[in-house]
Amino acid sequence: MESFLLQIVSGLAIGGVYASLALALVMIYQTTDLVNFSQGELAMASTYLAWVLIGNGVPYWLSFVITLAISFAVGFFLERVLMRRFQKAPLHSVLIVMIGLMVFINGSIGVVFGYELKDFESPFRWLGGTVRGYMSSHEAGIALVTLTVMTLVFCFFRFTRVGLAMRAAAVNPLSASFVGVDVSVMLSLGWALAAMIGAVSGVLSAPIVYLDPNMMLNIIIYAFAGALLGGITSALGAVVGGLLIGVAENLAGAYLVGTDMKLVFILAVIICILLIKPNGLFGRNVVVRV
């Protein structure tokens, strides 16, 4: 029983990482109906940035903030400069561009930093070894940070003028432009926010999976699963889905399929969701254009 609870709690913690990345995916899906395959690699690149900053003596939390700010800017310009060109291109072209972007980031980071695993310190050592025996201090820290980020994101969309405008641009771009919303800026902002939130997931997961150019490959799959489980159109769904997937992964690893088949398990989950309940738990019906 004790170990079962332990699995759940640590699942929730790692689920926080999936939830952030899933939220980043949803953010772009809402505005463009696209799943950004390069989201994980963007997060990975952000994590390297944080690593460089910390390595150069910048205090951890300051590095964290700078990383988020730069990720935001990079996301914004990626949309402006690159994705904008493919706005009217057929879907398969856009997918391929995103996969190309993913490959490009992965390779470039590999060239610059090499492929060996790097240690990434956890900023939560001060929390002590374990919190009441259930969570490692880093897991508690992940939970704390994700919760904060999620709350901020929700407040942004609920209470700010720009947040509301982004939602409007997502649900009805034409009407949004009729009320004076610059829809194209909103699209860029969507990418910017997604890159920023993704960066959170990268920086938080690095102490667990170690830092290397392929660190996000597995995590992005979990984030896919989380976003799909929550319903790819729903931000709240992405968070809940990400957390659930974290728990499910841990439980399946411990009791069902063994740790060496976790990815296969997640693949099965993804396929089941797509076939049985494509709208997920919270998603609205997506109208299929045939």
Binding site: L164, A168, V179
Partner: peptide, 25 residues
């Protein structure tokens, strides 16, 4: 101001939020 054909209200947002958006500028 433009009141488009088919009205173009943001159907998933509340009335209040629709008006807030109207005041976006």
């Amino acid at each position: 101001g433009h009141v488009p054909d088919g009205r173009g209200t943001f159907s998933r947002l509340s009335v209040e939020q629709n008006l807030q958006l109207g005041g976006h500028v």
